[in-house]
Amino acid sequence: MELIAIAFGAIFVNNVVLKQFYGLCPFLGVSTKKSSALSMGAAVTFVITLSAIIAHLLYTLVLEPYDITYLSTIVFILVIASFVQLVEMFIKRFSAPLYSALGVYLPLITTNCAVLGVAIDATVNKTKIFGDLDPTVLHVAIYAFGISIGYALVIFLFSAIREEMDAYPIKKNWEGIPIALITAFIMAMIFVGFGGIV
């Protein structure tokens, strides 16, 4: 039950994009096509989940015992950077079309706030997420996976909406980012409703 609550909260209530504003650059930049949104979602899910687990292990086994938690930010960003490098190599090797679709944003997955944000929230700021519960690796994994699914879900829905939107005329100054933001606003309003369920 606890794990379900964590997962539900992570996917809907505390939706990483619409509520916590993590990972907005790729959200607005990449999500113009459903296919690339899905790929991005998959890549981010992989990176977020694994880096959160690694961050949690590093934090509880190294940083906390040696009382150097102030180094968290540096340590985590390096871990994440290495990971992103891996994913980038992986995609480049196995899916050239996907690689070209993600374009400039793929290297910037390193600087995707969602990845570092989740890692930090699950460790340094764990009371914000888990309350009094001292999270185990399983809790962190579920949380990070939930967050990623929430990210993938929103980014996919959003790209679907934007694809449809392309068919309609929009005033010049509202094109692109502005209309995307208004769309995000409406989606965020809808997601606020999930808060009532928990």
Partner: peptide, 8 residues
């Protein structure tokens, strides 16, 4: 605050 690190 920590996320300034990844500010594009």
């Amino acid at each position: 605050l920590s996320l300034i690190v990844v500010n594009c």
